[in-house]
Design a protein around this nucleic acid. Structure first.
Lengths: 219, 219
DNA sequence: TAAAATTTTTAGATTTGTCTAAAAATAATT
DNA sequence: AATTATTTTTAGACAAATCTAAAAATTTTA
């Protein structure tokens, strides 16, 4: 079954809200999609009639398994396109989201599987979010603070807890990008700082404070 | 100005019909877009109101310079995406048209310029059609029959006049693909056959009949 | 040139996705 | 528990893009 771009956006947003906050209500969904509660109710009925949603009026709603599957398909497309835009076209990761919002609605399944292969079957997108596989299975990745990554074990930078300009300035200096591989070689108990190796760069030292705010996938 | 996908499809189709047959009328446009004459009239009015079209009812219509420019932008996007699908994702050129029909409506200009660079600024798409440059200028390419290509001069296979299974079988055998580089080394007056070099393959001989039906850009 | 055929346009309806404003149901507060 | 506030749904309208059927204009044919 093929949904319209608009229907797909609702399905995706419901999925995201379910993940993040557990419960979704009409108003929060409307707010996320920058639309009205009335339009949202209309769409909920439509999605129910297409058997993607459990919905009882005034009571609540949530995606059923078909809806979940559909959502994961869109999220997979979105994140693969983001990966493409950053890794192949060298676009900045702050800019790719909006473009991927359009690309994710292109329908060909063959296209997406070939794109996935072309990109080397990545599992994390440029924002550090995991990419579901072709069967819609989200890779389970344990996200931990860099300071808790076992010595010598390599991790993949997944996110930063503090997105301030100062933090960004520092990440920039160390050339730490989301998706970069990182390894802790030594810790200094005196001040909690760590000696790390980032990608193929020369080893360097970062503070415990920084290592507390940088998160990695423990892979 | 940003048009809807539907409006873009009309603009593009008008452009293509103007190129191919010189004159466009409501019915032929409706046929090409697989819609009705009534819908087409509606859209002609819309495009006129957006100043992309000269249109007098019952008299006729054609794109003005803004409409032409817009059409070339869409065609550029379509052909660059086709090139991407074939050259990077290894899709078959018969399959890429429909996917490019969707991709061409993705709006980011930065995306298209970066894609163009990533692909190496190609000038011919996988179907042998020229790709307009970033300013909307169509590369002027002289298309001639392979049999008329001057000796030693290299050309780029642009199209074949006969798309029968038999023709395809032969092209396959010679590994002649659209976009391939080709050079005529010698002609045999006895039967009109030609000795040619295709890409980096070993030299071989093809019949005059074949060379009459294979077209190349004289570059 | 008058009748027939074709092309183009209009009129009115339909679907999708949206909106505002008001009503109904639920939740919070005193 | 009654009132107030919030959330959700309905009712009705609107714009975009489409359709069918009929009318109007143009072209072809006899």
């Amino acid at each position: 079954m093929k949904l319209s771009p608009s229907e797909e956006n609702y399905v995706k947003s419901i999925y995201n809200l379910q993940l993040k906050t557990g419960k979704v209500n009409t108003n929060s969904l409307a707010a996320l999609l920058d639309t009205t509660a009335a339009s949202t109710t209309d769409m909920l009925k439509r999605l129910k009639s297409k058997n993607l949603l459990e919905y009882k009026k005034y009571y609540g709603f949530r995606l059923n398994s078909a809806g979940n599957k559909y959502a994961l398909k869109i999220i997979r497309k979105h994140r693969l396109w983001e990966f493409f835009l950053v890794s192949k076209l060298n676009m900045e990761w702050e800019k790719v989201h909006d473009i991927a919002e359009e690309l994710e609605h292109v329908s060909s399944a063959e296209l997406i599987e070939k794109l996935d292969n072309f990109l080397g079957n990545p599992t994390i997108d440029p924002h550090g979010d995991p990419i579901p596989d072709g069967k819609g299975v989200m890779p389970v990745m344990n996200q931990i603070a860099l300071k808790d990554l076992p010595l010598k074990k390599s991790g993949t930078v997944s996110s930063v807890s503090n997105q301030s300009r100062k933090m960004m300035e520092m990440l920039n200096h160390y050339r730490i990008k989301i998706g970069a591989s990182i390894r802790v070689l030594k810790t200094f108990d005196f001040d909690g700082s760590l000696q790390v190796k980032i990608g193929k760069q020369a080893e360097c030292v970062i503070s415990g404070m920084a290592a507390q705010n940088i998160f990695v996938y423990d892979n």
